[in-house]
Simulated scan of single mutants.
Amino acid sequence: MCVPKFATRRYPGLTLLEAADRADEDGGERIAPTTVNTYFQNLAAVFNWAVGEELVDRNLPIIRPAFRDLTA
C-alpha cells in the first residue's frame, strides 16, 4: 500500500484505506513502502523490548495487511 503522507492530519477520521482512496482522488503524496516497513520493524522492536522488561507477557506477531498497489 502506498500510504498517504500525513494521513491523519490530511484525512482526519478516515481509516488508512479510506485515506489512501481519498489521496488517489486528490493526487496526494505517498510514503515510500520501505518507510512503512521500517515503521513495522520499529513497532516490533518496541514490543520485543517490552517483553524483555516483562511489561507484557508476549510479543504478538504483527499481521501486515494485504496491501494493494495504489500506484498502478
Rank of each mutant, 00 (worst) to 15 (best):
V46A: 06
D24Q: 10
R64E: 14
I63T: 14
A23D: 00
D69R: 10
A32C: 10
G28I: 01
Q41E: 15
R9A: 08
D69H: 07
D26I: 08
A7P: 02
Y11V: 02
G52A: 11
Y39I: 13
G28A: 14
T71W: 08
V56G: 02
Q41G: 14
T15A: 00
R22L: 03
A20E: 03
R64S: 08
W49T: 13
L17K: 03
V46P: 02
R64Q: 12
L70V: 11
R64D: 11
G13A: 05
A19M: 01
T35M: 11
Y39P: 05
F6G: 04
P33K: 05
N42K: 14
Q41A: 15
D26S: 04
I62C: 03
Y39A: 15
L55P: 06
A32F: 06
A72L: 09
A44D: 15
T15S: 15
T15R: 00
E18T: 01
T38M: 10
C2L: 15
G27S: 08
T35Q: 14
A44I: 06
A66M: 05
A45G: 06
R9G: 03
L55F: 13
V46I: 12
E54T: 13
L14N: 03
W49Y: 08
G52S: 07
A45W: 03
R10C: 09
T38N: 15
R10I: 02
R30F: 08
L16G: 03
T35E: 15
I62G: 04
P33C: 06
F47L: 12
L60V: 06
R30Q: 11
G13P: 02
V51S: 01
R68E: 05
T38Y: 10
T34W: 07
K5N: 05
T35R: 09
N59W: 01
T38L: 14
A19H: 01
D24L: 15
G28C: 09
Y39L: 15
D26P: 03
I31S: 10
L70P: 04
A20R: 01
L16F: 02
D26E: 11
T71H: 06
E54H: 14
K5R: 12
A72Q: 10
D57E: 12
D24C: 12
